[in-house]
Amino acid sequence: MKMNRTNTAGRILALLLTALMVLSLAACGTKGGDKMDGMSSEPKNAEEAVAMHKELMAQENAILSEDTALWEKVFMAADKGMTMQEDGKNYGDFLLKTIEDAKEEFSDEEFAWLKEAATEISNIENKLTALEEKYPEIVQQSMDGDMSIPAGSDTSNPPDDGSMQKFPAFEGKDLDGNAVKSDELFSSNAVTVVNFWFTTCNPCVGELSELDALNKELAKKGGALIGVNTFTLDGDEAAISEAKDVLAKKGVTYQNVYFASDGEAGKFTTNIFAYPTTYVVDRNGNIVGDPIVGAITEKKQAETLQKLIDQALAADMG
């Protein structure tokens, strides 16, 4: 911030600003390419082999989750029975064959990309098999429950780093004055979607009717949706009546709750600054995946939300 008069300094800053713009562009549109190096050396012991095995599987998953829509097409083709996966055969080769068989379904560009990706997977699989042959015990250690072969539609599991974050506990009331306890609420539902909004937030109000529809759908699957209007925290009478007014106009039937702003959940709410924000919470009160920022009237956001809900429901079944 210390230039002018000296033209050069101004120019440098201008250039810096331009560079920043370019960088931010790049950050928005990264499409990861090849991340296949540094893993060719032989492992010295079983521990290293496990690490390597894990790394390879992560790479494979990364490739598979890079363009989910396109892979979906491939799996669809495989589902139609065009090609059969034979036991013990290389999964990459299977993908390659499926892609070749369904060639006409893809554009040239897609086909080229898929082929390259499948070849890469094939290479990874070869390395994996070699590792598994040499150290049979690593298979168990490396893939505790995680499949190396994606079994169909859902290939993009968000990275669960094991440490699930608890949704902050609260004891509050709904806008009609009925007591609501977070642990009871969460444990009685397979999945709870928590939507944070406020009355004067246009996109928040805009998504209310869609959230209501989602709530009805969730009810069939043993889930529920609740809203938290941040203006109503601590039971502000005027804010509650305004919120109720908007909810009535939008035909919302699901529960809206409030709690004390100085409690655990209240502090959590103050830290949310972008609205609307939607959390998915499982039966144990853990937050599933990352919160969804922005209205779910946007198709992309609705899909992300549905994925998280399905994930929570599937986990609840298992």
Partner: peptide, 8 residues
């Protein structure tokens, strides 16, 4: 109330 929240 509007300024302290991110208006997406």
């Amino acid at each position: 109330s509007k300024a302290i929240k991110l208006c997406l």
